[in-house]
Nucleic acid binder design. Structure first.
Lengths: 339, 339
DNA sequence: AACCTTATTCGAAACGTTTAGAATATGTCA
DNA sequence: TGACATATTCTAAACGTTTCGAATAAGGTT
């Protein structure tokens, strides 16, 4: 900028004024400066600018798993609306590792992001402490975090799996296996609560050993499903608490030699774009990814643009059960296992 | 930092020395300073630091589509190794939009990233110009870019689809539909070249109208596949040049009322984690995503750590044809359509 | 005791911007 | 013509670090 100023024979202040159009400058100087900029190929140094004005126009986005289509979908729309609002985004993913997550938060705060959107891998002390103490506006998505009072947009997980479970019960299933996500997450707990509530509503006793932890991951879910399937009194249906895990569940079903839906029914949280083209057509709970992303971004933008700092806002959206073809009424001849 | 210095009764230079352990400082002062840091809750300002030392330890990562599992897989490993090397990454995606891509490059360069990894959406003038002029080390992945001389790691696309096509020819298919990616990308062109080469090798004449452009997207691929399928002399097999597009192809097949693989065979570029559990089990070309990510990151790290700036390095990795169950020998009774 | 080393610590100048307020020029009006 | 308002431009002080070279202190050597 100094070079430009000298080349155009003006002061740096004037150059700054035209670059930011922050102050009136005469047409003559303006054009001289613009020419100099063009000729020198000047690009303003955003670092120096940030240092001075104390804002980076960058927001940090942390998600647990970028390999999960649900997250990539919402990340995609978040990026889109944030970009439109003039923000860059730094995306970090931590493979559900809370230690890594803590590092990433520090790193982003370090780099002075203006805001943070987080889908927490889990609720550890560090996260709560940081979020409580930082002045950086933060919005939580997908998962809540105990003791953290901040804006958030989440799904009505309890209701969604309640509906799905009720659907299976309605089909006559009584032994429904449940592959759970990590109970260190609010989604893990809420979804399980929905399952129990649905059971309760039908006065069916909850069996501890029908729920296995799959940690939201395919590999773990495979093992978890295996536990359920090798038993003599195996369930007639399985619910998977997210998209990655249902892959593991289906692999276990295949390896055991069962056919879905003829011999075992399956419902999964999260929809797939290909769910109605590959067999079996999975019955799923679809999340409103577009809305989640848009609202999260909007919440943050509102804070950033200095609207009055009201109390934290919590948005709760509804999921939608999409019935396809991975569930069948419970077969009459289950007596084989009961006998 | 000034606060810390005053609180500990030393100069800022000394504080800086202990924060960076860049100079020897007596145990006594060190502990006094550390206490002050702890007590004040001091965090060093990375922006100011970057301004001074001219390095951000951040690298920019641009991919065309974060919704594509192939990209997310390699992004995931790139982030992993870069993080381990002490770099943060800013991830941008542009939905295959070159205009947006240009903006993103400017934005990242603006923010003074130390390096760039790009999977180019397409080859426009701006990209080439920027990459040619910038001093920022850059590595291209997945796709090359005409006239850009930089490090790159790509797949041997031509060979991979040559093999896949040969496999289909071997099964007796003579009319093989080809759903192409955008020919503005090197992958789009190379893959098509592989198809033609395989045809040539068997002395089968290339039919222009068997190839339809799907732009690497599901929606476009659906339309493209429809074009192929509504014809009287429809192909007996279809090759899809990437993962997203094969979803569209399968939807078209379903909507036309055809069964795969009984009535039409399908092979796709890019593997899916669920490919061998949902029906039909897709025959695919798997890319070595782990290796691609690792090598790309390593290439960049090498440059960044000031190894001699040799000529640009081009790494070319091999794909692997995974034969499952979406291809069958061409049925004898195709005469129905030929008659 | 004077001098030289060596080890610590400090002062101050960068890095490239932004921005208040001072300075200058221009035009208006009594 | 002098005073004043207005419009434009400039000077210089930040922003929070890093880092070079100078200053100081302490210990060794002759």
């Amino acid at each position: 900028m100094l070079d430009v100023a000298q080349s155009a024979g003006v002061s740096v202040a004037t150059v700054s004024a035209v670059v930011n159009s922050s102050a009136p400058v005469s047409p003559e100087l303006r054009s001289r400066i613009e020419m100099a900029i063009e000729q020198i190929g000047y690009k303003r140094n955003t670092i120096a600018r940030s240092l001075k004005i104390g804002t980076t126009r960058t927001i940090g986005l942390i998600v647990a798993d970028i390999t999960n289509p649900f997250f990539t979908d919402v990340v995609s729309v978040i990026q889109d609306v944030l970009h439109r609002a003039g923000y860059a985004v730094m995306l970090c993913c931590n493979d559900e590792d809370t230690r890594l997550q803590d590092e990433q938060i520090d790193l982003l705060l370090d780099r002075m992001v203006d805001g943070l959107i987080i889908a927490p891998a889990g609720e550890d002390a560090h996260l709560s402490r940081i979020l409580a103490s930082t002045k950086t506006p933060t919005v939580l998505i997908d998962r809540l975090c105990d003791g953290v009072e901040s804006d958030a947009v989440v799904l009505d997980n309890r209701r969604a799996v309640h509906d799905a479970t009720a659907y299976m019960l309605n089909l006559g299933h009584r032994r429904i296996g449940y592959i759970s996500g990590s109970l260190a997450t609010s989604t893990g707990r809420e979804r399980l609560a929905g399952y129990r509530a649905a059971l309760d509503a039908e006065a069916i006793v909850f069996e501890e050993n029908l729920v296995q932890i799959g940690n939201f991951r395919e590999k773990d879910a495979y093992k978890a499903a295996m536990q359920l399937l090798i038993r003599a009194d195996r369930p007639t249906a399985i619910f998977s608490a997210n998209n990655l895990m249902v892959i593991g569940v289906m692999k276990a079903i295949r390896d055991i030699g069962l056919r879905c839906p003829e011999e075992i029914s399956v419902v999964s949280f999260d929809d797939f774009p290909w769910a109605d083209v590959f067999q079996p057509h999975l019955t799923t709970i679809a999340q409103p990814v577009q809305a989640i992303g848009e609202q999260a971004a909007q919440l943050l933008i509102d804070r950033l643009s200095g609207k009055e700092v009201e109390a934290p806002r919590r948005l709760m959206l509804q999921g939608r059960l999409i019935i396809r073809d991975s569930c069948r009424p419970v077969p009459i001849v289950t007596t084989r296992t009961t006998a």
